[in-house]
Design a protein around this nucleic acid. Structure first.
Length: 607
RNA sequence: GGCCCCGUAGCUCAGCUGGAUAGAGCAGCGGACUUCUAAUCCGCAGGUCGUAGGUUCGAAUCCUACCGGGGUCACCA
C-alpha cells in the first residue's frame, strides 16, 4: 500500500539510525500516500525534492520535540501555500498519532510543523543507549570502505613543535571518528627523508659529532640546525664510529650519518606523538619510493607520460614581484591545469632530481594502488597553495577513480596570562610539543585543539587551559563524567552493589521531569552529531556536543538542590532510584563514547 | 597582483551545509553551598552576522564586487 520511492529509500540508507531519521522514515511514506500527492502527475512528482525534507530538533525547545520543513519544501512543486500543505501534513500526523507516538502537532512561522512526542519516545533512548553501550550512535557511513588518512608528516629534522600539534590531534581524532563510522581506516605518516633538508640534518649532526669528540665548534653556522637535540646523536656517533668518520670525505660519511640521524629524529617524533596519544598504522618513507633499484617516481612519470599528461615546456613567471633569481627555462611539467590547477607543475628540479611534488604524486599513486579510493591529507594552513595541484594529481593518477580531501589546520597562537609567547626560529627557541603536553597534559591539549573548527586560528593560553572552571571545557566535561561515577558510588553506599545490576532492564516511565526529558533529548542527538562530524570531517562537533551534554547534566544535577524530589538517589524508593541511575548511566556512556572519539581520557574522578 | 582561509555580543567562538525571534562560554550585574563534590547551577543585560548588491517563499549560510585580518605564490619542504 505504501509506495516507497527511490529517494526515500536513499534517505533510509544514508542516514544512520537516529530518532529524527526514524521519524522521517515513517512520515515520508505517509506523505507520499496522502491526498496531497493524489492528483499529481508522475513528472511533477518525480521532481519533488523529497530529499530536502528533514526532521530535526528545533532551535527552541519550547517549539516541541521535533520540527520538519516538509511543507516548505513541497510548496513550490505542488504550487500550494506552505501553510496549507502544513495543515494537511499536520492532520496526517495527527491521524497517525498512535503509530508515530505523537502527542501533539502545531504549525508555526512560514509553515514549520512542530511535533511533540510521547514521553515514551524519549525514555526509550535510555534503553537504546544501555543496550548498545559503546556502539550507541555509531553511524554506518563507511560500510567498510577503505580510507587513508595522512597526518602529521613532520619533517624528520627535529622534535615536533606546537605547530604540528593541532594537525596531529585533528588527524588522529578524524581517523578515530571515521573508523567509528564504519570506514576501514589506515592512519599514515609520510616521512620526508629524501630531500636536501635531511642532508643539512646530517651535516648538523656531523658538527655535534665533532663536538662530542672534544672539538670546539663554536656557534652553529647559518644554514645548519642549531637545536641541542642533536647533541645526544653526536655522542652516539662517537660511540659507534670513534673518530673514523673524520678521515672520510663527506660523500662517504653523509649517508651513514643521515641514516642514523633520520632514525634518531623519528624516534624523537614517535616519542612526541606517543605523549599526545597520537597513533599511526604506517610510517611511509619517501626514500623507499626510489630504493632497491625500483624507481616508483619514474614509473609514475612514465605512466602519466603514456597518457600525454607530461611535457617539456616553460612556465610563466609568477605574478607580482619577480624573484631575483628567476630564470626562464624549460622543465618537465605535469598538466595539472587539466584537472583544475592554475598552472602546470614541475616534476624535476634544475639538477635533475625529483621535486617534492613528484615524490608526493608517486606516494599518492602508491596509496591508490594499495586500494584507497578515498584519501584525506591533513596539512598546515601554509600549504594551502598545495590543494589544487595535489587533488589534480590524484585525479590524474587514478583516472578519476580516487578522490583526495585536504584539510588544513590553522595556526595556533600561544599565550601565557594573555601575553603572546614569543618564539624565534633562528635560535631554535621553539615551544615544542613535548613542552606543551608536559605543562598542560594530554587531555587538555587534545580537547582544546579540537574545540575549534580546524580552519580557524586558535588561541592557546597556557594559563587559561589549566583553569579548572567552566571556562575550560575539558574539565567541565570530565567533571560531568566524574559526577556520574560519584553518583554510582553514592548509590552503592546508600543501598548496595545490587542497585546497579541490570539497569538496562529498568522501567524508566517515571522519569518525566522537564530536565530529565531534556537530558534524554540531548542523548538522542548524539547519533546525528557523530554522523555529521564524520561526514564533514569535523571532529569539533563532537567536542561541542559533549559540552552541551555536560551542561544539561550539570543543570539537572543542580535542579536537585531546589527540588529534592528530583535527586537521583531516593533512599526510600529503590525503584525510582534505579530508573534515574539508568539515565545517569546513559549519560556516562555517551560522555565516554564522545571523549573516546576525541582521544581524551574519561576520568572517573578529578580530585 | 593571483589563489586559499577568516570576519557573528566588549573578548573567545558555535550555528545542525538555505529555515522560525541568530546561540554558548568568558568578562559585567543579581541570586543559590547544614550538597547526590558550588571545579556546579539559575536569572539579567549584551547583535545592522565586515559593507553593498543579487539568487527565492526564506540568506549569517549560496553568487558577485568591495573593505579589513592572516597565509601562500618557478626550482624549496
Amino acid at each position: 500500500m505504501l509506495k516507497i520511492q527511490p529517494v526515500t529509500a536513499l534517505i533510509q540508507k544514508q542516514i544512520a539510525m537516529n530518532i529524527y531519521a526514524e521519524f522521517a522514515q515513517k512520515m515520508l511514506p505517509l506523505i507520499e500516500a496522502s491526498s496531497l500527492l493524489a492528483g499529481v502527475d508522475a513528472d511533477t512528482r518525480a521532481k519533488l525534492p523529497l530529499d530536502r525534507i528533514v526532521v530535526e530538533p528545533p532551535r527552541d525547545v519550547s517549539h516541541g520535540d521535533m520540527a520538519t520543513n516538509a511543507a516548505l519544501v513541497l510548496a513550490k512543486g505542488l504550487r500550494q501555500k506552505p501553510r496549507d500543505i502544513a495543515e494537511a501534513i499536520a492532520a496526517l500526523l495527527s491521524d497517525n498519532a498512535a503509530a508515530l507516538n505523537v502527542q501533539s502537532v502545531s504549525i508555526a512561522g512560514p509553515g514549520f510543523i512542530n511535533i511533540t512526542l510521547e514521553h515514551s519516545v524519549w525514555q526509550s533512548i535510555i534503553g537504546e543507549v544501555l543496550h548498545n553501550g559503546k556502539n550507541f550512535g555509531r553511524p554506518d557511513l563507511g560500510q567498510g570502505e577503505k580510507i587513508n588518512v595522512e597526518y602529521v608528516s613532520a619533517n624528520p629534522t627535529g622534535p615536533m613543535h606546537v605547530g604540528h600539534c593541532r594537525g596531529a590531534v585533528f588527524g588522529d581524532a578524524l581517523a578515530t571518528l571515521l573508523s567509528f563510522s564504519g570506514f576501514d581506516v589506515t592512519r599514515e605518516y609520510y616521512i620526508n627523508d629524501a630531500g636536501a633538508q635531511v642532508d643539512v640534518l646530517a651535516r648538523s649532526a656531523f658538527l655535534r659529532y665533532r663536538e662530542a669528540l672534544g672539538e670546539n665548534i663554536g656557534d652553529i653556522p647559518e644554514g645548519f640546525y642549531p637545536g641541542t637535540y642533536l647533541v645526544p646523536l653526536g655522542e652516539q656517533l662517537k660511540d659507534q664510529y670513534g673518530s673514523t668518520l673524520l678521515d672520510m670525505d663527506e660523500t662517504d660519511w653523509l649517508p651513514l650519518i643521515k641514516r642514523a640521524a633520520i632514525s634518531a629524529m623519528m624516534d624523537l617524533i614517535r616519542a612526541d606523538l606517543e605523549k599526545l596519544g597520537v597513533a599511526h598504522d604506517l610510517f611511509f618513507s619517501e626514500q623507499s619510493l626510489t630504493q632497491d633499484g625500483h624507481d616508483r617516481v619514474a614509473e609514475m612519470i612514465d605512466d602519466l607520460t603514456d597518457r600525454n599528461l607530461i611535457y617539456r615546456g616553460t612556465l610563466p613567471p609568477p605574478k607580482g614581484k619577480l624573484p631575483d633569481d628567476w630564470e626562464d627555462r624549460e622543465q618537465t611539467l605535469f598538466r595539472s591545469t587539466l584537472y583544475g590547477d592554475d598552472v602546470d607543475r614541475a616534476l624535476l628540479k634544475s639538477d635533475g632530481s625529483y621535486t617534492y611534488f613528484a615524490s608526493d604524486i608517486a606516494y599518492h599513486f602508491d596509496k591508490y594502488k594499495r586500494g584507497f579510493n578515498l584519501m584525506v591529507d591533513v596539512l598546515g594552513a601554509d600549504h594551502q597553495g598545495y590543494l589544487k595541484r595535489m587533488t589534480a594529481a590524484v585525479k590524474a593518477i587514478s583516472a578519476g577513480n580516487a578522490s583526495l580531501d585536504i584539510r588544513f589546520c590553522q595556526l595556533v597562537n600561544l599565550f601565557r596570562d594573555g601575553q603572546p609567547v614569543k618564539m624565534s626560529k633562528r635560535s631554535g627557541n621553539l615551544v615544542t610539543l613535548a613542552d606543551v603536553v608536559e605543562e598542560v597534559g594530554r587531555d587538555v591539549t587534545r580537547f582544546i585543539m579540537l574545540y575549534r573548527k580546524n580552519d580557524a586560528t586558535l588561541d592557546f593560553d597556557f594559563t587559561k587551559v589549566l583553569e579548572q572552571s567552566k571556562d575550560n571545557p575539558v574539565f567541565y566535561v570530565q567533571y560531568a563524567h566524574a559526577r556520574t561515577h560519584s553518583t554510582f558510588a553514592q548509590a552503592v553506599e546508600v543501598f548496595d552493589e545490587k542497585i546497579l545490576d541490570d539497569l538496562d532492564q529498568v522501567d524508566v516511565s517515571a522519569l518525566t521531569d522537564a530536565s530529565e526529558l531534556a537530558l534524554m533529548r540531548k542523548l538522542a542527538e548524539y547519533p546525528r552529531i557523530v554522523e555529521a562530524a564524520a561526514k564533514f570531517y569535523e571532529p569539533h562537533r563532537v567536542a561541542f556536543y559533549l559540552n552541551d551534554l555536560a551542561s544539561a547534566f550539570h543543570g539537572h544535577w543542580n535542579r536537585g538542590k531546589d527540588l529534592p524530589q528530583l535527586r537521583f538517589i531516593k533512599d526510600d524508593n529503590e525503584k525510582l532510584t534505579r530508573a534515574r541511575l539508568a539515565l545517569v548511566l546513559a549519560v556516562q556512556i555517551v560522555l565516554r563514547s564522545g571523549l573516546n572519539l576525541l582521544g581524551v581520557d574519561a576520568r572517573e574522578e578529578l580530585r
